[in-house]
Design a protein around this nucleic acid. Structure first.
Length: 208
DNA sequence: CACCAGGAATGTA
DNA sequence: TACATTCATGGT
């Protein structure tokens, strides 16, 4: 079983620095994290473009907008009934807190538990927002990450916390490393080995 | 036409 | 705890 550092170095040597998460503002990043739940990123881009065009790509705007209007704008991202409500829920929470800038005084652990208490924010979405917006060191475990660890037999567990624990106990505690590693895993997943564990061109084939 | 995509909530056993 | 179902659009 290859160690996680070796995999990271291999991925970095192939793909280089990633400069992720896509999104120009804190709000846009968090909105994207919610909209991309079980949805192709391409569809999320359309939804975000619609929100921008309507000047609704911020939580302060979403907070006071009609929910039906949000639904129509984000419809390309699917599950619009649920996601419109999720965006509203997050917007209410953020409004109550007074914005992202007022969250600096909270511990990362506290922030995580608060995010998880919002309906529509699960572990992956919470950690994505924590890592990419709030600079908290939580490793993001997504579908690509699960596939990677299972394919490489790093663990047989499919539990979120279990997989996250393995990463956080085996790589240095470094925000930028967490961001880059996650981004590289997604880059790998989007580029190669979608369903074929032994595809010839996968950069990690030496580990398979 | 079947299957899936950077999940989460809800219900069942 | 471990699965199953539901939510919905657009690409392959």
């Amino acid at each position: 079983m290859p160690d996680l550092i070796s995999i990271y170095e291999k991925l970095f040597s192939v793909f280089g620095h990633q400069n992720w998460w896509p999104g120009e503002t804190e709000d846009e990043i968090a909105i994207g994290a919610i909209l991309t739940q079980n949805t192709a990123w391409k569809n999320v881009e359309k939804a975000i473009q619609n929100l921008k065009q309507a000047n609704l790509c911020s939580f302060s705007a979403i907070f006071s907008a009609e929910e039906e209007r949000i639904k129509k704008l984000i419809s390309p991202a699917g599950f619009f009934n649920s996601k419109a409500q999720y965006l509203k829920n997050f917007a209410s929470w953020l409004h109550h807190k007074g914005g992202f800038s007022r969250l600096k005084e909270y511990s990362c652990r506290k922030l995580r538990s608060e995010l998880l208490s919002i309906k529509g924010i699960g572990e992956e979405t919470a950690d994505s927002i924590l890592l990419y917006v709030l600079s908290c060191p939580f490793f993001v475990v997504d579908a690509y990450t699960r596939r990677l660890v299972h394919r490489h037999e790093i663990t047989s567990s499919n539990r979120y916390g279990e997989i996250q624990k393995i990463f956080m106990e085996n790589i240095p505690l470094d925000i930028e490393l967490y961001k880059n590693y996650h981004a590289l895993i997604v880059k790998l997943g989007k580029t190669y080995c979608k369903r074929n564990p032994r595809c010839d061109v996968c950069p990690l084939r030496e580990f398979l």
